[in-house]
Each structure stands twice: as C-alpha cells, then as structure tokens.
Amino acid sequence: MLMHSGTAFRRIHLTLREIYFTGVMSLIIILVSGLFVGMVLGLQGYDTLQRYGSSEALGILVALSLVRELGPVVAALLFASRAGSAITAEIGLMKATEQLSAMEMMAVDPLARVVAPRFWGGVISMPLLAALFSAMGIFGGYLVGVQLIGVDEGSFWSQMQASVDFREDIMNGVIKSFVFGAIISWVAVFEGYDAEPTAEGVSGATTRTVVTSSLAILAADFILTAFMFRGA
C-alpha cells in the first residue's frame, strides 16, 4: 500500500477530500469532548489537590495529563469510532457494490485511488485533532478551575509553564497521536478492503475496526509511554 502512497500526494486533491471527511467532520466531536474532559479534570483535580492544600498545581495536572495521555488517546478513540468506522464502511460498501472491481476493470488501481488517500488523510488529521483536543481541554480546565472555582490565574498558568516541557511532553504527545493516526487508518482501510462483500461482512468489518484499533491504541500507548517517560 505504501507503494501507492505517491499517488495520494501526486493527486493531492484525493487526500484533501479525505482530510475533509475524517478531520473536518470530526472537529465538533473532538472539540466538545475535549472541552468536557478538561472541565471534568478541572473539577476532579481540584477536589483531590485541595485536600493537600496545593490547588495551585491544578494547571500542571490538567496540562500534563491532557498533553501526555488523554489528548492523544481519547482523541484517537473518538477518531477510531467516528472516522475509522466510516472509512471501513465506505470501502467495504464499495467492495460489496463491486465499485472496486469496476475500477480494476478500468485499469484504475483501487489501492492507489481509494485506499492510500484515506490512509494518509487519517494520518495527517489525527495529530491536528489531538492538539485541538488538548488545547480545548486545557481551556476547559481553565474555565472550571480559574473562572468557576477561583484558583489563582497566575499560578495556574505559570506552574503549568514551569513544568510542561516542549520537547519532552508536547512533542511526545504529537508523536503518539501520529502513531495512533497511522494505526487507526491502517486498521480501517485493511478491514474495509478485506471485508466480505455482503451487508453482514461490512457490518462485521466496521465493528472489528473499532474494536481492533481501540485495543491497538491502548496497547501502543502503553508501549510508547514506557519508552518516552521512563525515568524522566
């Protein structure tokens, strides 16, 4: 499939179209859930931290847990169920209605025309969505922590800035979401292309996409975290 990736970039419009369907259409769910996750983190974090009299550390808690873990992982899980399933269903249905065979008849390689753009669309969208999720979550934590509960605004931001490292935390988060994007898109296009060309087969493949990619994300997250933050 990677051999056909050249087409995805030569005919960039095919990939752009997929970024639109996977990325832009996932914006609402990612932004809204990011906001709520951040707000919940703000509430729960404050509740626990204020027992130790260190509610100023709320900024660190919200920012680190979002940037390192929750941002990439939750965004990836949402992305798998929102966009991954759609990709599988689309390709599976193309196969069931013999559009893929028709393409082959016209000497159009479906791997290059259909599969590669969807894969790259997912890979490109995912880090952007994860960054948006984290930013939105931090904003949500700020809303609840500072505006609602009244943690000091200065210490919220300054403690966050003092303990979040750009390369160590943010770049690792971006790398994670990149890997997750590749996993989801890979599983989704494979399951779609591999699906039984029947209604049952497509529905089964869609389910498998969500289950497999969610499990793969969580497992990959553990492995990546073990490598990235070990002993740091």
Binding site: P127, L128, A131, L132, A135, W157, Q161, V164
Partner: peptide
Amino acid sequence: IGLVALLFLAMKVGN
C-alpha cells in the same frame, strides 16, 4: 486551527 492549537500548546503551555 490545528496548527494554531499546537502553537498555543507550545507557547502558552510549554512556555
């Protein structure tokens, strides 16, 4: 907006 979010993380959060 994805890049702006990343920039926000880098500047405001990562300092």
